[in-house]
Design a binder for these strands. Structure first.
Length: 279
DNA sequence: CGCATATCCTGACTGC
DNA sequence: TGCAGTCAGGATATGC
């Protein structure tokens, strides 16, 4: 599922193929994808505009436009942004909801079977760097950094499980179910621990591993699970799934200590941890 | 207020 | 083999 490393990989791909390109044609066939402001607003906001930059905050991408607005894209569970260099010879796959025709003859196709993803155009307020819809997001550990002190302030006094706090996009932006489990494992802390109960050392470990795990996953172009729902703009899978220590590995040995990885539920989400080396 | 749970949706998988 | 049932989860609305 696209989390920060996968979205960052897509962002880099879009930076390479879309920045400097003008949108000549906007075709919307999936109303749910543009549910926030509608198809007409998307067409109006994009047609004739040129992409000037590709930004990311958390799991949101913002493709900046030359009139001061931005195309905001969220892939949610199953969204894909596919760059097609030869549209006439590339059939549209099922669940293609939005197609942007670019001035070099290529297309950006938004594909999303479960239609949780969305796209919309929004103004960037004076003095801000991103549209207002992204304003409630917390720190992005890669863009903004996340020091032990900052994480400590976020966790302090909270009784909710550590993992639930890591997943709350208003507190920390970009971590999803997979990386939350991997970060907790590297930091040797159970995802079920009340967030406020971590020692300063544990907080520091979580902060440090948050950065390291996300950077490592970006370097490997993200994680593609068996359902292959995450691919980059070229349609290529990521490689970080080979490094997963606990996620999806219930019953298999912990790579660090050999004990059996267990599965539980935290905040309604499937969660994996090693009961031997995570305290 | 803080935390938990239901909801949206399709496809892959499970088990009878 | 086939098919009904379960599960997957990001963000948001709603409930306790």
């Amino acid at each position: 599922m696209p989390e920060l490393p996968e979205v960052e990989t897509v962002r880099r791909g879009l930076e390479a193929v879309a920045v400097g390109r003008r949108v000549d044609k906007v075709s919307v066939t999936g109303a749910r994808t543009v549910r926030r402001y509608g198809a007409a607003a998307l067409r109006k906001g994009l047609t004739g505009r040129t992409f000037t930059a590709a930004l990311r905050r958390g799991k949101f991408m913002a493709l900046m436009l030359d009139d001061g607005a931005a195309l905001v894209v969220h892939l949610r569970m199953t969204g894909q942004m596919i760059h097609v260099t030869d549209p006439r010879r590339t059939p549209k796959v099922p669940h293609t909801h939005v197609v942007l025709g670019l001035d070099d003859g290529s297309e950006l196709r938004f594909v999303d079977p479960r239609t949780f993803g969305e796209m919309f155009v929004s103004e960037v307020p004076e003095g801000a760097d991103l549209p207002a819809e992204l304003g409630a997001l917390g720190r992005d550990p890669v863009v903004d950094g996340l020091t032990p002190k900052q994480l400590g302030a976020i966790l302090a006094g909270r009784k909710a499980p550590l993992k639930s706090v890591l997943l709350d996009q208003r507190l920390v932006a970009g971590i999803g179910n997979i990386y939350a489990d991997e970060i907790c494992h590297r930091a040797r802390v159970r995802p079920t621990r009340p967030a406020g109960s971590l020692s300063p050392k544990e907080v520091a470990a979580v902060a440090r591993w948050t950065g390291k795990v996300l950077e490592e996953a970006i370097a490997m172009r993200g994680s593609t699970l068996r359902d292959a729902k995450y691919v980059d703009v070229e349609g290529e899978s990521g490689g970080y799934q080979a490094r997963h220590a606990v996620y999806g590995r219930a019953g298999q040995p912990c790579p660090r200590c050999g004990a059996e990885v267990r599965r539980t539920r935290v905040g309604g989400r499937s969660s994996f941890f090693c009961a031997n080396c995570q305290v």
